[in-house]
Design a protein around this nucleic acid. Structure first.
Length: 562
DNA sequence: ATTGTCTGCCC
DNA sequence: ATTCTGC
DNA sequence: GCAGAATGGGCAGACAAT
């Protein structure tokens, strides 16, 4: 059992919720920062980390293994229990408002049951109960979670219920996330914003950052790069041509294969090795094969970064779908290691023998990396890279990369530092030109949040052998506000019937959808699905009979396999 | 023992 | 992952 | 140009229902 929070007088949860509502009502970035600052100033010192975590819309920091384990469905069940309304009624509110929090709030306002003995919720009560919920597992655990959550909701005002719900499902929608909280912390405690930012990059725990900031700049600066504390990974910008890339990154630059696997940050000290994913989850257990090869073939204590891909017996690289079977594996790990062997392509070093490397230029990091890695063919290699200022050479390298089954190339500025978490012009990705399909819209789903009251997601079909539409996936991105409106009005009269948020739509409209790749689908009727689909445009010049066919999809799939 | 639904996390 | 939008 | 939000396919695991 969890110890109660060590606080004498806990902040009222309602006070926090009032701040949340203010945040929701302003769109000004600066004003939001001000509201966060004011909330932090009001919070009791000991409760600051919790307040910060809740502002971010979760109970635990991202690296934590603790999860509340309550999603939208279970939440609605709880609300039905508490209010005496049916789940159907609440789902109706959800569809009307397009927001879980508002739906629960509305349910609380319209509840059938009259409550007695309600007490004010304190922050510590909310936090302790949510922590308790996270600890239940096994048989009947959902029921136990439900009971505690029901207890909280029973004592919550409608406004508190709104935010309690959003915290539980991790969808705050106040327009505040890490960036604003970082600025708010800097302002509240008079810290330089970049110091706060750095502390967050290496700790990935905003609550902890706030606590240290509250103690002073010296305490804050103790959060620095350390072995076995994963740091935020550098992100890449997208470009669409080599020239555009050269322009941003400068020449000569590094051009590297962009492998289609898992990004890994590997920490090593002597024989101790731990592996973290992009979201800084620890996946050491799942990849003990990688641990072994790293332990034997990388010299020194270090933090390195790599992309790990699946590799077949003939040496060809496996599609992402296959290696993805390894990441969540908890049982029979040795079996899957045998079945889906991997190759780790190392491309950066962030820490080496007691020294941070992140401020070193990329070129010298790469040189150091080459000294510590002993290549083991098909297991552990340096990423393929050339350094060039010749666009033609870069393009050739790019095509070569694609032909091997990679996603494209990365372009890197040779003198750039490693910038954790940032997507600045130091590192770029260049992917292949997209293919597209003309698909029939056969269904749609009512959207949420800013897409409430619009159809926000569209079900796509191609024509089968009998010219009947068969589903091949959904698309929901690439849509401007204007298009969203047009699509909704265009499709509204074609709705045949609705089931919850789903609308079944008469085959009539054709849309062009671009995608990265065609995959085998275990789920869709057509047997195929689109990877990273995005809407390009409506094809009013085409009728459903002119849509692309399953034969064409099959042909593209086959030719992509080569 | 099997199946279906939900959740969280890879891309 | 991709994309759009407001600041 | 950043920060935030809304949405994609698919996988394993955890539970609940059958």
């Amino acid at each position: 059992m969890q110890e109660p929070s060590p606080v004498v007088v806990s902040m009222e949860f309602s006070e926090i919720c009032e701040h949340f509502e203010q945040l929701e009502q302003t769109s000004s970035r600066l004003e939001k920062t001000g509201i966060v600052t004011s909330l932090l100033t009001r919070a009791h010192r000991d409760e600051i980390p919790i307040v910060v975590q809740l502002i971010l819309g979760s109970v635990f920091p991202t690296w934590s293994t603790e999860k509340v384990g309550v999603g939208e469905k279970l939440l609605i069940k709880v609300v039905a229990d508490v209010t005496g309304l049916t789940e159907g009624t609440i789902l109706g509110y959800l569809k009307d408002t397009g927001d879980v929090g508002r739906a629960v709030e509305q349910a609380m306002e319209n509840k059938k049951q009259v409550m007695f003995l309600t007490e004010d919720l304190s922050l510590s009560r909310v936090y302790d109960d949510l922590t308790k919920i996270s600890q239940y597992e096994g048989k009947r655990s959902q029921d136990k979670k439900l009971k505690i959550l029901a207890g909280l909701l029973t004592n919550a005002s409608p406004l508190e219920a709104r935010y309690l719900s959003r915290i539980v499902v991790e969808k705050m929608r106040t327009g505040v996330a890490e960036g604003t909280v970082r600025d708010g912390i800097a302002r509240a405690f008079g810290m330089p914003s970049d110091v706060v930012e750095k502390a967050f990059m290496v700790s990935n725990d905003m609550g902890l950052v706030a606590k240290k900031a509250c103690e002073g700049e010296e305490a804050l600066s103790t959060l620095s790069l350390m072995l076995f504390r994963p740091i935020k990974m550098m992100a890449a910008q997208k470009v669409s041509t080599v020239e555009e890339g050269f322009e941003i990154v400068g020449t000569p630059c590094a051009v590297e294969y962009k492998y289609d696997g898992f990004r890994m940050q590997i920490h090593k000290e002597g024989s101790k090795v731990r592996i973290f994913t992009r979201r800084l989850e620890d996946v050491t257990r799942q990849f003990r094969d990688v641990v072994g090869v790293v332990r034997e073939n990388i010299g020194g204590d270090c933090i390195i970064e790599a992309e790990t891909i699946g590799i077949a017996e003939d040496g060809r690289w496996l599609p992402f779908q296959q290696i993805s079977r390894r990441i969540k594996r908890k049982y029979d790990i040795d079996e899957i290691i045998d079945k889906i062997p991997v190759m780790t392509n190392v491309f950066d070093v962030l820490y080496l023998n007691g020294e941070s490397m992140i401020d070193e230029p990329f070129k010298s990091r790469r040189q150091k990396l080459e000294k510590i890695v002993t290549s083991v063919p098909r297991k552990l290699v340096l990423s393929e890279m050339v350094i060039t200022d010749d666009a033609e050479e870069a393009r050739t390298f790019f095509s070569e990369s694609l032909s091997l089954g990679n996603e494209g190339v990365m372009l890197k500025n040779l003198s750039s530092p490693y910038t954790p978490g940032l997507r600045v012009g130091h590192m770029l990705k260049l992917k292949s030109v997209l293919e597209s399909l003309d698909c029939i819209v056969i269904g749609a789903e009512w959207g949420t949040g800013r897409r409430a009251h619009y159809l926000g997601s569209f079900h796509l079909a191609v024509l089968d052998e009998n010219n009947m539409p068969v589903m091949i996936g959904k698309v929901a991105t690439g849509i401007t506000d204007e298009m969203l409106e047009t699509l909704t009005e265009r499709l509204r009269p074609l709705i045949e019937y609705e089931e919850g948020k789903m609308a079944h739509i008469k085959a009539d409209l054709v849309v062009e959808v671009a995608y990265e790749e065609i995959q085998k689908s275990p789920h869709y009727e057509s047997g195929f699905a689109l990877r990273f689909p995005r809407l390009i445009r409506m094809r009013e010049d085409k009728g459903p009979e002119d849509a692309d066919t399953i034969e064409r999809v099959y042909d593209i799939y086959e030719s992509d396999m080569l």
